[in-house]
Design a binder for these strands. Structure first.
Length: 431
RNA sequence: GCGGGCGUCGCCAAGUGGUUAAGGCAGCGGCUUGUGGUGCCGCCAUUCGGGGGUUCAAAUCCCCUCGCUCGCCCCA
């Protein structure tokens, strides 16, 4: 390819898409505002050590998926592969944690060097929530409910909430040993990948997609059985609360998340519309992370949702239900008024009028072509605008013009060019 | 990183070795110098992702390369 093009896995968002993104982001922001969350914006570039220490040296994300390079000062820098580590770093650095509970949200691009596939890109976008300084089961559920309600408001269907408890570090270590013992007696029945993981990260064998491995695991000891009394009780509370809030969920004892910092509640929201990369939103509790990054002991929960995947689900929902909320969000808006104009004096007049109307809150498409009026009207029609008006030599001469309805038969409104209030009244009441 | 499929105009798409590479949508111009939606007419790929090779002859066959796509790995 000799033509310049975007890097592999780096995707342009064209106007057709940015409209939908903005609509979705607006819904998300409204939810965050009502839930008392504040936005935080952190740099895209961080020192590599942040992610190595935060996410876990042994994870795939850190081990083989990071965009890491040395800057001119020979510091090792990394394009953030996820948001949580940065948010925590920022909260520690600026002393936010000594100012009480921090309820934060963020949105922006993340970078992971992976082979692109459906719902997976090298630069992708997440909207995330981090709630720092609270440890109750209730806060887990509040955070999960926020994600659930947000997705529901977008008119999405076919979503499933899966939850699990990863317990405490001690719980996991104890269980890890049980699982390894059990699996080692059956190594020959494991697939090659899982045999490898038996050494590197045994818990990850649990969510292997290999059917025979899954069949084998049916009789394996589960993480839930290995939970301490307190951990088990805590998880009971989470489930009880979800039931009380009537948020449907699926208990998935195999749900293990790939980032080291999770403990206790872990959850994912998956869609049946996405193929292999089914997770739209994932998160959980990460009580140890703040301390691990040099901050005070601080409990925390959060989640991140993938915008690209969300948009795929939204588009599917819009297609399946043309009258639903999802379809409304994906619709392209038409201008309130399409202004046809021609003639030197008239074009200036039209420009001025468009400006006045826009200031008054009316959306105006001003035809800038200077083409024949018939031509301009064709474009007016295609714009989907409910109204059109012509400003030409006659109108410039008389100071009068007419608003013409385009979508349905109706009467034209003759108005004075300087009667802005009357124009706004017509345009706003009927659109 | 590994395995499968694919790559013809902005989008969809016919063509699978032989004169000028269909068609549709969109776009632009006209029929119609001041009034749209329908209709009709015209324009819109010297070139088939890129490079090399085979052949008298390639979009069509071969090799390399880039990209997309599906799955694995992993995750949003």
């Amino acid at each position: 390819m000799s033509q310049l093009q975007s890097l592999r896995g780096m995707v342009d968002l064209l106007p057709d898409h940015t409209r939908r993104w903005q609509a979705v982001e607006a819904v998300a922001r409204a939810h965050f505002r009502r839930s008392g969350l504040a936005e935080i914006r952190t740099p895209l570039l961080e020192v590599t050590e942040l992610f190595a220490r935060g996410i876990g040296e042994a994870t795939d994300v850190v081990g083989k998926e990071m965009y890491t390079f040395a800057d001119r000062g020979d510091r090792s820098c990394t394009l953030r592969p996820e948001g949580t580590a940065s948010v925590v770093r920022s909260a520690i650095q600026h002393g936010l944690l000594s100012q009480g509970v921090q309820k934060l949200w963020y949105a922006g691009p993340m970078f992971r060097y992976e082979r692109p596939q459906a719902g997976r890109q090298r630069q992708f976008h997440q909207i995330g929530v981090e709630c720092l300084g609270v440890s109750t089961a209730r806060s887990d559920v509040e955070v999960i409910a926020l994600a659930w309600d947000l997705l529901r408001d977008l008119g999405l269907s076919g979503l499933e909430l899966q939850i699990n408890s990863l317990g405490t570090l001690e719980d996991r270590q104890r269980y890890r040993q049980q699982l390894v013992n059990w699996l080692e007696a059956r190594v020959d029945q494991l697939d090659v990948d899982s045999q490898q993981r038996l050494i590197t990260n045994p818990l990850r064998i649990l969510d292997s997609k290999n059917p025979s491995t899954q069949a084998l695991l049916i009789d394996a000891p589960t993480l839930l059985q290995a939970l301490s009394q307190e951990s088990a009780q805590r998880f009971e509370s989470v489930q009880l609360l979800l039931n009380q809030l009537e948020i449907p969920f699926e208990l998935n004892p195999r749900l293990v998340r790939g980032l080291d910092y999770y403990g206790h509640t872990a959850f994912e929201i998956t869609s049946d519309q996405l193929g292999a990369q089914a997770t739209v939103c994932g998160g959980g509790r990460y009580d140890g992370l703040v301390q691990q990054l040099g901050g005070p002991p601080t409990a925390a929960v959060g989640w991140a949702l993938g915008m690209e995947r969300l948009m795929l689900v939204l588009e599917a929902a819009a297609k399946a239900n043309p009258d639903g909320a999802a379809a409304r969000l994906t619709a392209t808006p038409a201008p309130d008024l399409y202004l046809v104009n021609r003639g030197e004096q008239a074009e200036t007049l039209a420009l001025a009028l468009a400006r006045q109307l826009r200031s008054a809150g009316v959306s105006v498409e001003l035809d800038g072509s200077g083409a024949a009026l018939g031509k301009q009207f064709k474009r007016a029609d295609r714009s989907g605008s409910a109204w059109a008006a012509v400003i030409g030599d006659e109108e410039a001469e008389s100071g009068q013009f007419r608003l013409k309805p385009l979508l349905a038969e109706g009467e034209e409104h003759g108005l004075a060019l300087n009667d802005l209030d009357a124009m706004v009244a017509v345009l706003k009441t009927t659109t």
